[in-house]
Simulated scan of single mutants.
Amino acid sequence: MLVSFSLCKQTTSLLQKPPGELKSNFFRPRLEKEMVVIIMGATGTGKSRLSIDLATRFPAEIINSDKIKAYAGLDITTNKIPEEERYGISRQRILLTWLHIAMDSILAGGRVPIIVGGSNSYIEALVDDEDFQFRSRYECCFLCVHVAMPVLHQYVSERVDKMVEMGMVDEESHCIGVPGFDRYFRAEPYLDKQQRGKLLQEAIQEIKRNTCKLACRQLEKIHRLRNKKNWKTHIVDATEVFGRRGKDADEAWKKLVAGHSTEIVAEFLYNFSPQTLVSGH
């Protein structure tokens, strides 16, 4: 079940303002093109979390463009959002060939598609198609969640360790063809405990290196889309969030990432800007 609100109540909630503080005539949706929100960013920056935040603030539905998250049985490996943290935003679809069908269905229901995921090649192929059909029909709001690379690399390393603690090795042992621990699984039956431990640590370190390389490639691709193809992209800097822990990190996320992104999307969808706030009229 999707979370949706009436327009005035929804917008008041998303900006955390008391009822009556916003004039309803500010919220006049643009009618020229269909509206689409696209969230990009390197692996580990919190794209999925942001998509959930936005989908609980707007009448929206998420389309997942990250192909690996479609695999069943790899919830830990692919860092899927737990069911209890999805707030009812459960419909995630994938594959470029089905994206247009998914978007038509979402739009027909009066909702906004939020496309999110690490597969920037999918997103580029969708948006910059050969016959320019996508650009002619849709107006896009591009959000890029950014984390400074040294901070992100440290986080990725810690995240891999946490995944291992949660059972990633056992999860991958039941899947065929998933890279990461292939060498370890092949050699494990023929090694003693010490050898297995050493090979396992080598595999974990290799995964960390490969994940950091992936993050760099993803960031380079986003820079190319912005600088070479002139995609107008809103950079949402989450670096400070990743330097904090616990409640401090959550509060920083709400303000710097979710809050800032909500303002951008509200202005995109409804021509609304925080400067249009009025008091009690």
Rank of each mutant, 00 (worst) to 15 (best):
I52C: 04
S24P: 08
F27D: 15
N25Y: 15
L31N: 00
G44K: 05
M35A: 13
Q16C: 12
L22T: 03
K23R: 15
A42G: 05
S48G: 14
P18H: 07
F26A: 11
F27I: 14
G44F: 02
I52N: 07
F26S: 12
E32T: 13
R49W: 08
L22F: 08
Q16D: 14
I39R: 00
G46S: 08
G20W: 08
L22Y: 08
S51D: 07
S48D: 10
S24Y: 13
K17H: 12
P59T: 10
V37S: 06
V36G: 03
M40P: 00
L22A: 06
M40K: 03
R28N: 14
L54K: 01
G41K: 02
K47L: 10
R30F: 13
E34Q: 06
L22G: 04
G41L: 09
K17A: 14
G46C: 07
K47F: 11
K23N: 15
E21P: 00
Q16I: 08
P29H: 09
I39Y: 02
T56H: 01
F26Q: 11
Q16Y: 09
G44A: 04
A55V: 04
I52E: 07
S24V: 14
K47M: 11
A55S: 13
P59W: 06
I39K: 01
G20D: 01
K17N: 08
A55D: 05
V36K: 01
V37E: 06
L14N: 11
R49I: 04
F58Y: 08
V37R: 04
K47R: 10
Q16L: 12
A55I: 03
Q16E: 13
L54A: 01
P18L: 10
E21S: 08
P59S: 12
I52A: 07
L22P: 03
P19W: 00
I39Q: 00
R49H: 11
Q16F: 11
G44H: 03
R30W: 11
G46F: 02
E21Q: 02
E34M: 04
F26P: 01
L15C: 00
R30D: 14
S24R: 14
R57C: 12
G20K: 05
R28S: 15
K17M: 15
T56E: 07
S13G: 14
R28G: 12
G44Y: 05
S51K: 05
L50R: 07
V37A: 04
P29F: 09
V37T: 07
R49F: 09
L54V: 01
V37G: 02
N25V: 15
P29N: 13
K17T: 13
G41C: 11
I52Y: 08
G44L: 03
K17V: 15
K33T: 11
M40N: 02
L54D: 03
D53E: 14
N25C: 15
F27A: 15
G46I: 07
I38Y: 00
G20R: 05
S48M: 10
L22Q: 07
I38G: 00
G44P: 02
A42F: 03
